[in-house]
Amino acid sequence: VDYIVEYDYDAQHDDELTIRKGDIIKNVKKLEEEGWLEGELNGKRGMFPDNFVKEIK
Rank of each mutant, 00 (worst) to 15 (best):
N42H: 13
V5S: 07
L37N: 05
L17Y: 00
E40H: 05
K21T: 07
E33W: 12
K54A: 09
K30P: 10
V1A: 13
N51G: 10
L17G: 00
K44V: 15
K54D: 09
M47G: 08
D2N: 10
L31M: 14
E32Y: 12
D8A: 07
E16V: 02
N27Q: 13
G43P: 01
I25R: 00
I19N: 00
R20F: 02
D23Q: 14
E55Y: 00
E38D: 13
E55K: 06
G46T: 01
Y9D: 00
R20M: 05
M47A: 10
I19L: 14
G22L: 02
K26Y: 06
G43F: 06
E6R: 15
E16N: 03
E40Y: 07
V28L: 04
V28K: 01
I24W: 04
P49V: 02
I56P: 04
G46R: 02
G43V: 03
N51T: 12
V5Q: 01
E38A: 07
L31P: 14
N27L: 14
K21R: 12
E16W: 05
W36K: 07
E38R: 05
E34R: 15
R45W: 04
M47D: 03
D2M: 09
E34T: 12
V28W: 02
N42P: 03
G43K: 08
I24D: 02
K21H: 09
K30Q: 13
F48H: 00
N27S: 13
W36I: 05
V28N: 02
Q12G: 12
A11H: 04
D8M: 03
H13Y: 15
E33S: 12
V1H: 15
E32F: 14
R20Q: 11
E38L: 03
K44E: 11
E34F: 14
D50H: 09
A11D: 01
L17Q: 01
N27K: 06
D14T: 14
F52Q: 05
D10F: 12
D15A: 11
D23A: 09
D2T: 09
E6V: 11
E38K: 07
R45P: 04
I25Y: 00
K57R: 10
K57Y: 01
L17M: 09
K54R: 12
P49N: 15
L37P: 02
N42E: 11
G39M: 00
E40W: 05
L37F: 14
E55D: 04
K57F: 03
G35E: 07
D2Q: 14
Y7K: 09
L31Q: 08
L41V: 11
K21P: 07
A11Q: 14
I24K: 08
R20L: 03
Y9T: 01
I24E: 05
V5D: 00
D15H: 11
K26P: 02
L17R: 01
V28G: 13
D23F: 01
D8W: 03
A11Y: 02
L31H: 13
V53T: 09
N27H: 15
W36V: 05
K29F: 11
Y7D: 13
A11E: 11
G39H: 00
D23H: 09
V5K: 00
L17D: 01
Q12K: 11
L37K: 06
L41A: 08
G46I: 04
E33G: 14
P49S: 07
E32D: 15
D8H: 06
G22I: 01
V5L: 02
D23L: 02
G39T: 01
I4R: 13
H13G: 09
D15M: 09
D15Q: 10
E34Y: 12
I19S: 02
K57G: 09
Y9S: 03
F48I: 11
G46Y: 00
N27A: 13
G22S: 05
G39L: 01
G22A: 08
V28M: 02
N27R: 08
K44G: 09
K30A: 08
K26E: 08
D2W: 08
K21M: 11
R45L: 07
D23E: 14
K57Q: 14
W36E: 01
D50I: 10
I24R: 14
V1T: 14
K29H: 14
D23P: 00
I56F: 01
I4A: 10
N42G: 10
D15I: 11
A11T: 04
P49W: 04
E32G: 13
D14K: 14
E38V: 04
N51A: 06
D23M: 10
I56A: 08
E32H: 12
F48L: 12
H13M: 15
F48M: 09
K44M: 14
K21D: 05
I24V: 08
D23W: 01
E34N: 14
D14V: 11
N42T: 09
K57H: 15
G35A: 04
E38M: 04
R45M: 05
D2K: 08
A11N: 04
I25E: 00
N27D: 15
D23T: 06
L17T: 02
Y7M: 09
V1L: 13
G46M: 01
E55A: 12
K44T: 10
E32W: 13
E32T: 15
Y9G: 01
M47E: 04
D14M: 11
K29T: 14
I4K: 08
Y3S: 04
Q12E: 13
I25P: 02
K29A: 14
D10T: 11
E32S: 15
K29G: 14
E40P: 00
L37M: 12
Q12S: 10
R20E: 05
W36L: 05
H13I: 06
G43N: 10
V28Q: 01
R20P: 00
I24T: 11
E33H: 15
K29E: 15
E6I: 15
V5W: 02
Y7H: 15
V53I: 08
T18R: 10
R45F: 05
I4M: 11
E6Y: 09
E32L: 10
I24N: 06
D10Q: 12
V53E: 03
Y7G: 09
K26D: 03
Y7N: 14
E40F: 06
E40M: 08
K26N: 10
D50W: 03
E55S: 03
E6T: 09
D15S: 11
Y3P: 01
I19G: 04
V1W: 05
E16I: 02
R20K: 08
Q12H: 10
D23I: 04
V53W: 04
E6G: 05
E16D: 06
Y9L: 03
I25G: 00
F48A: 03
H13V: 14
D50V: 11
E33R: 15
K26L: 06
T18Y: 01
Y3R: 08
V5P: 02
T18W: 01
L41I: 11
K57S: 14
E34L: 10
D10P: 05
Y7P: 00
N27T: 10
Y9A: 02
L17F: 02
D14F: 14
G35N: 08
V1F: 12
F48P: 01
L31Y: 11
L17P: 00
E34Q: 12
L17A: 01
D8F: 03
D8S: 08
Y3A: 08
V28S: 06
K44R: 11
I4H: 08
I56T: 07
V53K: 03
E55Q: 08
E33L: 14
T18A: 06
G22D: 07
D10H: 14
I24H: 05
L31N: 12
K30S: 10
F52A: 13
V53L: 05
L17I: 09
N42Y: 04
I19Q: 00
L17K: 01
R20D: 01
E55W: 00
I25M: 03
Y3D: 01
L37D: 04
K57P: 09
D10N: 14
F52G: 05
E40D: 08
P49F: 09
K44I: 12
F48S: 01
E40S: 07
L31W: 10
I56Y: 01
D50E: 14
